[in-house]
Design a protein around this nucleic acid. Structure first.
Lengths: 119, 119, 119, 119
DNA sequence: GTGGTCTAGACCACT
DNA sequence: GTGGTCTAGACCACC
């Protein structure tokens, strides 16, 4: 279980996203036990509180559930994670497009810009 | 002079960006007098302090210059504003691409995603 | 012997309470042998360690006693279980009343609220 | 603005509840600025982080909204706070009733018990 | 000054 | 050992 964290962005939502992705792509399966808060914190080089907060967010979204004393588990309904990933993706993309349009770019220019920088 | 501010993002940098854009696209010309801090604040529905900070940032970047008692003026060298816009654009785009890749998308998928959402 | 466990509350004290109740209402009689830790765990769908802890608590309170190799037995003095039940009841009720008062309800309103929801 | 906190219960939800109550009973009005995180922390004798978390919860529920650099404000829609109070009240009461029933009390006994302890 | 995020470290109850 | 909660204190960007 690997963690690529961009230290220039808030860490907590990144953990949330990455766990959703891991569930969405099958790396984590329905009902499976997650690594403990402390293990993730250690592996990702992050404070346990930050991981705890990320897990709380995931639980509030019904993507995982916590069981005191035994750990956190992937929800049986994996669909929610997929939706969350889709939602995050769409929101990031819409944000990007809007910001680019505010900067005066039109649709064709944005597409070209992406194409140039993408590799 | 219109202001489209996204209340969900920091306001100050948005003002900086938009003035750069207005200079870059010729809406504001070299040496032209800007609206006063108060006028911009009123027109954009924002705290005057925020506008003041934005103007200071622009002045530090050599994009505008202040003349005590008479107002703020677009720098004679419009090129700096163009560079700033280019810089911001590139950074936003790289950020977006990196975040999408972290979400598990490859280059082709990102391009397709943009194409679908852009219109 | 049935077990109604609310998974949203700590399990261990629930087991303690329910055994006290069973003693208090005569379902378990003085000197009677209890089900084994494993049996209770199985019947209640709970980790045996949790049941073990519950039994330890009960023993410390003098409500049951353990006999190595033969099992756990209801104490001869059933009174203690009765007191425990009374104590728990009072504490739960006082808690509830205090929390409702903190929410801005007065005594009459609390009574009415209970009456409406109780059936 | 007074804070009665029961140190034997989790503090954070208590703050959430009390702010909801203050909005519901009109002590805080729609659009009004709340005390700052630090002020509440000081006044309630609690760590600022705890207050921050409570405010986050309130924001996620649409009961207040945060404005970076200027403070937290009561949402224009006061109704949500009222609903939240009602929801909390009902949940606490149902919990209480269920726990009492698990302890072997029937409806009449619960009502009598409340009546005796309430004053 | 204000909210937002994070680190560090502690304690608790439960499994 | 595990999650849950809290304190303490720090830094940042923004208004």
């Amino acid at each position: 279980m690997s963690w690529k964290l961009d230290k220039n962005r808030p860490v907590c939502p990144q953990i949330v996203e990455q766990i959703c992705v891991k569930i969405a792509n099958g790396e984590l399966k329905a009902g499976e036990k997650l690594m403990s808060v402390r293990e993730v914190a250690l592996a990702a080089g992050v404070n346990p509180n930050t991981v705890q907060k990320a897990f709380e967010t995931l639980e509030q979204n019904g993507i995982i559930y916590a069981q005191r004393g035994s750990g956190n588990f992937v929800s049986d309904d994996v669909l929610i994670a997929n939706q969350k990933v889709a939602e995050i993706t769409e929101q990031k993309t819409r944000n990007y497009i809007n910001e680019m349009k505010d900067l005066g770019f039109n649709e064709e220019e944005i597409k070209k810009y992406i194409e140039v920088l993408i590799k």
